[in-house]
Design a protein around this nucleic acid. Structure first.
Lengths: 114, 114
DNA sequence: TACATTATATAAACATCTTATATATTTTGG
DNA sequence: CCAAAATATATAAGATGTTTATATAATGTA
């Protein structure tokens, strides 16, 4: 598994992106989705995820709905209007960051002449 | 400029990668190189860089040589043997992380059918 | 019946980064 | 010639974000 130090700073954006794509999700589901999309390489810890979700909620970026499923409580999170208008910006920033990282780690990237 | 939150966790690897490529560098030079490689998008702060450099030195991953250039002291950093054997591993991890991020942010990536 | 999975949550400890501050020389532009 | 910008390193306080440990509880599986 990838050392999750690397995730620092991008967790918020990852959460927002997934919620944008999937409409609404609960915490556990988010961790599973990330594992799925990264072939098991990134595993979110709940100690990091839940504080982020709660903070996003307190900032008015997410809203929660509690539902009961098999006698277990599920807390669904979804984007507010404010959240929606923020996501694209955040994703763009993250993509720009990824490109920058590639510029450093992989500086020879460019047109390949055959 | 990209919010440097995102840099968290990858700063160490960035430094190691640059030192591997350029042999030896001084702190200021590293910040310039990162700006150059990222088209000004990533600007390292000295409050982040120097502690990282000092820590890497204390861990035996870097060694320093002080030189005088125009009455200004320059502290050159370069990889130790231990450092060299660590870099490839760290770079591989970072690249894997970048790929994983892309898997999340850009899930539709794949062959494009014209 | 025991273990794995599903599900949320918090607290303490730790790591890392930003911002502010300090110091000092050389180069450049007016 | 003088002021400002660039060059160069460094630390401390505060903020932020993450890991690890812990707690609770129901369902599914072997």
């Amino acid at each position: 598994m990838i050392q999750t130090d690397l995730i620092k700073g991008s967790l918020r954006t990852i959460v927002l992106k997934l919620l944008k794509e999937n409409g609404r999700m609960y915490g556990y589901e988010i961790t599973r989705k990330v594992e799925e999309l990264t072939a098991g390489k990134i595993k979110l810890t709940y100690g990091a995820l839940y504080p982020v979700l709660h903070k996003l909620e307190s900032e008015g970026i997410l809203i929660t709905e509690q539902e009961n499923y098999n006698n277990r409580i599920r807390v669904y999170y979804s984007l507010t209007e404010k959240g929606h208008s923020l996501v694209s910006e955040k994703i763009r920033e993250l993509m720009e960051f990824i490109e920058s990282l590639q510029g450093i780690v992989n500086p020879q990237t460019g047109p390949t002449y055959a």
